[in-house]
Measured scan of single mutants.
Amino acid sequence: TLEEDLKKLQLSEFFDIFEKEKVDKEALALCTDRDLQEIGIPLGPRKKILNYFSTRKNS
């Protein structure tokens, strides 16, 4: 689940933002850096999230 993935990244504090915006794993895989910025995710966590999901998509 998205919540489990965020826990792996030690970013579970952002789960509420994704839940509020109705972003699940499938939607997050389609998000850009700009999308994450617009919903209030800071730069460092955005980079970690985007890297994590891009490596999952390619495997």
Score class of each variant (00 low, 15 high):
28 L>C: 05
44 G>V: 14
4 E>A: 05
41 I>M: 13
19 E>R: 11
6 L>T: 02
23 V>T: 06
21 E>D: 06
31 C>V: 11
26 E>L: 04
56 R>M: 12
3 E>W: 08
42 P>D: 06
37 Q>Y: 06
2 L>S: 00
3 E>Q: 06
1 T>V: 03
28 L>H: 06
27 A>W: 15
12 S>Y: 08
45 P>A: 15
18 F>E: 02
53 F>Q: 08
19 E>A: 06
29 A>V: 03
4 E>K: 06
13 E>A: 10
39 I>V: 10
39 I>K: 14
16 D>R: 12
21 E>R: 15
59 S>C: 10
22 K>W: 01
7 K>W: 02
52 Y>T: 07
15 F>W: 05
30 L>S: 15
34 R>S: 12
54 S>R: 08
29 A>M: 08
57 K>R: 07
3 E>G: 02
56 R>F: 09
53 F>K: 11
27 A>L: 10
46 R>W: 00
14 F>D: 02
53 F>Y: 10
10 Q>Y: 07
42 P>K: 01
45 P>Q: 14
52 Y>H: 14
52 Y>L: 04
4 E>C: 00
16 D>C: 09
31 C>W: 15
47 K>L: 09
49 I>G: 02
29 A>Q: 04
21 E>I: 14
6 L>P: 04
50 L>F: 11
46 R>V: 02
37 Q>G: 12
12 S>H: 12
44 G>A: 14
53 F>S: 06
19 E>K: 09
18 F>I: 08
26 E>R: 13
10 Q>N: 11
20 K>S: 05
33 D>F: 01
2 L>H: 01
12 S>W: 08
22 K>N: 14
45 P>R: 01
20 K>R: 07
55 T>F: 03
43 L>W: 13
33 D>L: 04
28 L>Q: 04
15 F>G: 11
45 P>F: 08
32 T>E: 12
40 G>E: 02
15 F>Q: 09
26 E>G: 14
58 N>C: 06
2 L>P: 01
23 V>P: 04
29 A>F: 10
55 T>Y: 08
15 F>L: 11
35 D>S: 10
34 R>H: 12
56 R>Y: 11
55 T>K: 13
3 E>T: 01
42 P>L: 00
54 S>P: 05
58 N>V: 11
57 K>D: 12
53 F>R: 05
4 E>D: 07
2 L>M: 12
42 P>I: 00
4 E>F: 06
1 T>K: 03
32 T>Q: 06
10 Q>V: 01
48 K>Y: 02
46 R>D: 06
46 R>S: 10
2 L>E: 07
58 N>P: 07
15 F>C: 10
58 N>S: 12
21 E>W: 14
32 T>V: 01
47 K>R: 10
5 D>Y: 01
39 I>E: 07
14 F>T: 02
39 I>N: 06
16 D>I: 08
54 S>N: 08
48 K>C: 03
46 R>T: 06
51 N>S: 13
57 K>A: 09
1 T>Y: 13
26 E>N: 09
16 D>M: 06
30 L>V: 14
58 N>K: 07
33 D>K: 02
7 K>H: 10
38 E>T: 10
19 E>M: 11
47 K>I: 14
49 I>Q: 05
34 R>I: 08
43 L>K: 14
51 N>M: 12
31 C>K: 15
4 E>R: 02
24 D>Y: 01
2 L>D: 03
19 E>V: 12
59 S>W: 09
56 R>G: 09
22 K>F: 11
48 K>W: 00
55 T>P: 09
41 I>C: 03
42 P>Q: 04
20 K>L: 04
37 Q>L: 04
35 D>Q: 14
31 C>G: 05
53 F>D: 10
30 L>P: 07
5 D>V: 04
34 R>D: 13
21 E>A: 15
20 K>E: 07
49 I>F: 01
6 L>K: 05
11 L>S: 00
36 L>M: 08
52 Y>V: 06
13 E>D: 06
38 E>Q: 08
14 F>I: 04
27 A>V: 12
49 I>T: 05
54 S>Y: 03
25 K>F: 09
38 E>A: 13
38 E>R: 14
20 K>C: 02
15 F>N: 12
40 G>Q: 07
3 E>D: 05
40 G>A: 01
11 L>H: 01
24 D>V: 01
32 T>G: 04
59 S>R: 04
40 G>M: 02
49 I>V: 07
31 C>Y: 15
50 L>A: 03
53 F>V: 04
55 T>R: 11
40 G>P: 04
2 L>T: 05
42 P>A: 02
1 T>H: 01
4 E>S: 05
30 L>F: 10
49 I>P: 04
30 L>Q: 14
56 R>L: 09
26 E>C: 13
13 E>G: 02
5 D>E: 13
36 L>T: 05
51 N>W: 04
35 D>M: 14
31 C>S: 13
35 D>E: 14
41 I>V: 11
40 G>D: 02
3 E>L: 08
28 L>Y: 01
50 L>W: 02
21 E>Q: 13
28 L>T: 04
5 D>L: 11
12 S>N: 08
26 E>T: 07
42 P>C: 00
44 G>Q: 14
33 D>R: 02
15 F>V: 09
37 Q>H: 06
27 A>Q: 15
48 K>D: 07
1 T>S: 06
21 E>H: 13
54 S>C: 06
24 D>Q: 10
10 Q>C: 09
34 R>L: 11
55 T>H: 08
21 E>P: 06
12 S>R: 06
52 Y>P: 05
54 S>V: 03
41 I>D: 04
36 L>Q: 03
6 L>H: 01
33 D>C: 01
7 K>T: 07
44 G>M: 12
24 D>K: 08
27 A>C: 15
23 V>F: 15
56 R>E: 13
7 K>I: 01
25 K>M: 12
15 F>T: 13
19 E>W: 03
18 F>M: 06
25 K>S: 09
11 L>W: 00
25 K>Q: 06
20 K>M: 12
7 K>M: 03
27 A>R: 15
27 A>N: 14
56 R>W: 09
23 V>N: 03
19 E>G: 04
30 L>I: 15
